Simulated scan of single mutants.
Amino acid sequence: MDAPSAQLHTEIRDSVVRAFATRRPLLHHLNADTSWLLQIPRPASAVNYGSRIYYNILIDPWFIGGQSDVAKWFSQQWHATESAVKSVAEVEELARQVEILAGGLNLGRNRGRRKALKEEEETFVDAVAISHEFTDHCHKDTLLEVHRDVPVLATEKAASLISSWNHFRTVITTPTFTEENPDWRDYSLTPLPAWLSITRLTASADALYYHSALLITFATHPFLSATPKKRSSLHIYGDDPSSTISGTDAAECVIYTPHGIPASALTPIGLADPPLHTLAFLHGLHDVKISAAQQLNLGAKNGLQAQRILQAKYWVATHDEIKQGGGVIAWFLRRKVWTLEDALKEAKVEAEGGDTVMGGTEFEDVNFETVDNGESRILH
């Protein structure tokens, strides 16, 4: 490497290191569709010297090969764009490199201790979250690459399916976050850390929970209150008096809804106590239907309504890959490709007065992000 190239390499690396030093969540798009790695910085009180900085959640992984629901003659799809990440091993390496750049793995010091930790930590994936039982979200071949000790949180049907593979030691049915129990800490199920919960939001009229969302909630700051709060009675291992959390500080959340979720189903977020700040809202722009009979992906217009309620700092498009398809169902799929600008224009036309709703100042602070295949974002 010549001197100018070496200098550029050093400057880029230094810039990345400075960015990671902010200790903010990282979001990585692993394919062109809807597979993600969310890296959440652990609270300072949960990071020991030499231990990892990030808690890594793998969401709906499907990297290579096809997916089929019901039967291949009925529906089968393949990625039209080659996935940037092609295996769980590559996810592991991505997470490892981030830890090195963030200073979480001090490879040059305490080599004996690091070797012992490496042997103990056989995976950098800390949890897997599955939003639906459909095989573009719950892809068996990809999931079987994940270390069996990694806990999986999945919807009821997906959890039953995954359990039938006899691969993972811990498969948990994701609880539903409700306004009747608005404290996110009550949903922190063992073996998740006490400062993190993974739940879901559902719509009352959605019997199949197709238009639901994953709600990933976390407190990255130390709990300051002296009054501890017991871990959830929902957890599957009975009472554990040593597992307590404390404090009443507001937490942040990431809402992931690959098919979209009706705005009316977001009521529990506004009623959360302690309050929840929506850091990122993952909702696609494309409107996808099976003829006129069944709405699949709700698209940009629904996303605008939901974002108006959530006021998420980042709105990130997901599940908008136009995949290669086969089978009977492919003949009936109807897709309308929206841009955010087009959705805003139509919303203004539909709104009474033409310019009083959506598209004005209420979206000035929203960072709409198109995070492409293989791209990453720091969620400041």
Rank of each mutant, 00 (worst) to 15 (best):
L101K: 04
G66N: 11
E93R: 13
A80M: 09
A89K: 06
E121H: 08
V70Y: 12
I64A: 13
N110M: 03
S68K: 10
D126P: 01
Q76S: 14
R109T: 11
E99Y: 02
Q76A: 13
T135W: 08
G112M: 07
K72Q: 15
L58F: 04
L107W: 03
S83M: 05
R114K: 04
V85T: 13
V128F: 00
L94V: 12
I100A: 07
E121N: 06
R114I: 08
Q97K: 10
H79F: 08
Q77L: 14
R113E: 12
R109E: 14
E121G: 03
D126A: 00
Q77W: 15
A95D: 05
T135V: 10
E82G: 09
G104M: 01
V70W: 13
D126R: 00
I130M: 00
Q67R: 14
I64S: 14
A129V: 04
R113L: 14
Q76R: 15
V98F: 02
R114V: 06
G108C: 07
T123R: 00
I130S: 00
I64K: 14
R109D: 13
E133I: 10
S75R: 12
V85G: 02
W78N: 15
E82V: 13
L94Y: 11
L58W: 03
V88F: 00
E120I: 07
K115F: 11
I64Y: 10
K118P: 01
H132A: 06
D69I: 14
K72C: 13
T123S: 02
H132N: 06
R96S: 09
E133Q: 11
G108D: 12
G66C: 10
E120Y: 08
G112C: 03
I100S: 02
L107F: 01
A129P: 00
F63V: 11
T81H: 15
A89Q: 11
P61Q: 06
H79W: 01
G104K: 00
I130N: 02
T123Y: 00
H79K: 06
E121Y: 11
Q76V: 15
K86Y: 11
L58H: 06
D126N: 02
A95Q: 03
I59G: 05
A116W: 07
E92W: 03
S87K: 02
E122W: 04
L101N: 06
W62M: 11
I64T: 15
S87G: 04
V70P: 08
G66I: 09
K118H: 12
I100W: 07
F74N: 05
V128K: 04
G112V: 04
V88Q: 02
V70T: 13
E90L: 07
L94M: 11
V125N: 02
D126H: 00
Q76K: 15
L94H: 09
Q67P: 08
S75P: 08
W73R: 12
R113Y: 08
Q77M: 13
H79Q: 07
E122S: 10
S87W: 07
E119H: 06
D60G: 06
E133R: 12
E93W: 07
E82T: 15
D69A: 14
H132C: 03
Q97N: 12
V125T: 01
Q77G: 14
Q77E: 15
W62Y: 08
K72M: 15
E119D: 02
F134S: 08
K86E: 15
A116L: 09
I59H: 04
V70E: 12
Q67Y: 14
G108Q: 07
N106A: 10
A80G: 15
